[in-house]
């Protein structure tokens, strides 16, 4: 994996699985043996307010928060939250949003859009597929595994 720190911001609204998606991503990076930090403010988020979670991984991560303008990737689960979060991205940073799923085969259920977007992200990160799958299963109840693994694979087929 890259020798520098990778910064990913996951954003959306309370109830959309933003924190869950960032948990899965952080766990996947953790399973790769990297140093990982993940941070978000989740005070009143369950009442539908904006949520953003920072995930950082690499050989050594210090601050748990991603400085503005330094995110390599921004995943936004709610289309109307793209603009409020765009400032976190680097000039060369990648935006992943529900629009990125336009070309994927099949329909994705609303509650697994978060994991489908991780599927899109997985195309640009050097994390092995088995590691992603293990992280998804470790962070979700068993009855949700199939649906989310499917959503992840659908997301992986997105063409940029």
């Amino acid at each position: 994996m890259a020798s520098k720190v990778i910064n990913v911001v996951v954003a959306g609204l309370g109830g959309q699985g933003v924190v869950k998606a960032s948990d899965i991503l952080a766990d996947a990076a953790f399973r790769c043996g990297l140093d990982v930090k993940k941070s978000e403010i989740h005070g009143m988020s369950q009442r539908g307010g904006s949520v953003a979670s920072d995930v950082r991984f690499g050989p050594h991560v210090y601050s748990p928060m991603i400085p503005a303008g330094q995110a390599d990737c921004l995943i936004v689960v709610a289309p109307d939250q793209v603009e409020v979060n765009r400032h976190v991205l680097k000039a060369s940073g990648i935006l992943v949003s529900p629009e990125s799923l336009a070309t994927v085969p099949g329909k994705i259920q609303a509650k697994s859009v978060n994991v489908a977007l991780l599927g899109v992200l997985s195309n640009v990160l050097e994390i092995p597929l088995e590691t992603w799958e293990a992280a998804i299963c470790a962070n979700l109840a068993e009855k949700h595994h199939r649906l989310n693994l499917e959503a992840f694979h659908q997301g992986r087929q997105a063409t940029a």
Partner: peptide, 13 residues
């Protein structure tokens, strides 16, 4: 201090 665009505030469910 940078002005950050306000997000969506929380509301009663």
């Amino acid at each position: 201090e940078p002005v950050v665009a306000p997000g969506k505030p929380p509301a009663l469910c």
